[in-house]
């Protein structure tokens, strides 16, 4: 009996050592955003009007989660972890990740994080990853958050952690015996294939055309998975580097861009005349 038990323990030990050796770890940074198609800004305070607006998982972050899970399905033996910095209610975005199939999640919630700019956000995320996750293979982020919209947090995070990055990926594959990642990324002139060594960071700009749906079982099970809430004290971080104090930038004013109506419309009801006018215009400006 005792021998049996020892055997089991040693088998378990061996397996966990083996898991450490082979199991990849993908960290997915996600942000909760207001569900807005039409952004409304309070003209007096310059902040987003969030009243009466539902909060959702940022769509580009959802693509990152989809990609992490797709890699897990395809290559197996991958642990997926979602991390978010935000107020306590941002846990619902993490629960959504758990429903989608992510293994566990961590919420960085602390009043001291409030007011972070993109740098402070990236720095806090980096410190949290260092303090709580240790070794990892890949970080996935969304191309941008649909509220802040800067697309800065991903690149900053990779710089702070000193790992290579690929931005705006639309598809990825693991290469070089899972030691590298190769991504197709969108650039203005078309597509580009890029490969980096792992650990690295990839931001996603595309996902499935139709958002995935969870089963009711996944929704119920998600609520039993690990959702850790960490505060500034859990991170090895100097108070001055947090939140508003740790922010390098400050938003002075937010205003909608002025719509410039400088376009010139050529009446196309008479195609030949219109074409002539157009050519005349282009010649005048020395375009042709």
């Amino acid at each position: 009996m005792i021998a049996d038990r020892y055997n089991k323990i040693s088998v378990n030990l061996r397996r966990s050592v083996a898991e450490k050796l082979v199991k990849m770890k993908i960290l997915i940074c996600v942000k909760q955003v207001p569900e807005i198609t039409d952004v409304k800004i309070n003209p007096e305070t310059g902040t987003l009007i969030r009243e009466g607006v539902d909060s959702i998982l940022n769509p580009f972050c959802e693509y990152a989660v989809e990609m992490g899970l797709e890699l897990e399905r395809h290559y197996g033996d991958i642990e997926t972890v979602a991390i978010s910095m935000g107020p306590p209610q941002a846990s619902s975005a993490l629960i959504r990740c758990l429903e989608m199939g992510v293994d566990r999640a961590t919420l960085l919630a602390d009043m001291r994080f409030a007011g972070s700019d993109t740098w402070a956000t990236a720095f806090t995320l980096a410190q949290a990853i260092r303090a709580m996750e240790g070794d990892f293979d890949l970080i996935l982020v969304g191309k941008q958050a649909i509220d802040g919209d800067t697309a800065q947090v991903g690149p900053e995070l990779s710089e702070i952690l000193g790992i290579p990055q690929i931005m705006y990926a639309v598809s990825v594959e693991l290469t070089g015996n899972k030691k590298k990642i190769r991504a197709k990324r969108e650039i203005e002139t078309g597509n580009e294939i890029m490969e980096i060594k792992l650990p690295g960071l990839v931001s996603l700009s595309k996902g499935p055309m139709i958002r995935s749906v969870s089963s009711f079982k996944e929704i119920l099970d998600a609520r039993k998975k690990e959702l850790r809430v960490a505060t500034a004290s859990d991170l090895n971080i100097d108070e001055n580097e947090l939140g508003l104090g740790g922010s390098l930038t400050q938003v002075v004013k937010i205003f909608p861009p002025q719509v410039k109506k400088t376009g010139k419309l050529v009446d196309g009801s008479e195609p030949q005349g219109a074409a002539k006018k157009l050519i005349g215009f282009l010649r005048e400006r020395k375009f042709v």
Binding site: E35, D54, R96, V213, S214, S215, F216, K217, L220
Partner: peptide, 17 residues
């Protein structure tokens, strides 16, 4: 069947979907 063979959603946008 099983509850795994279902679709479910509770966010407003999913209820509408």
């Amino acid at each position: 069947s099983t509850l795994a063979k279902s679709w479910a959603g509770y966010e407003q946008r999913d209820l509408e979907r």
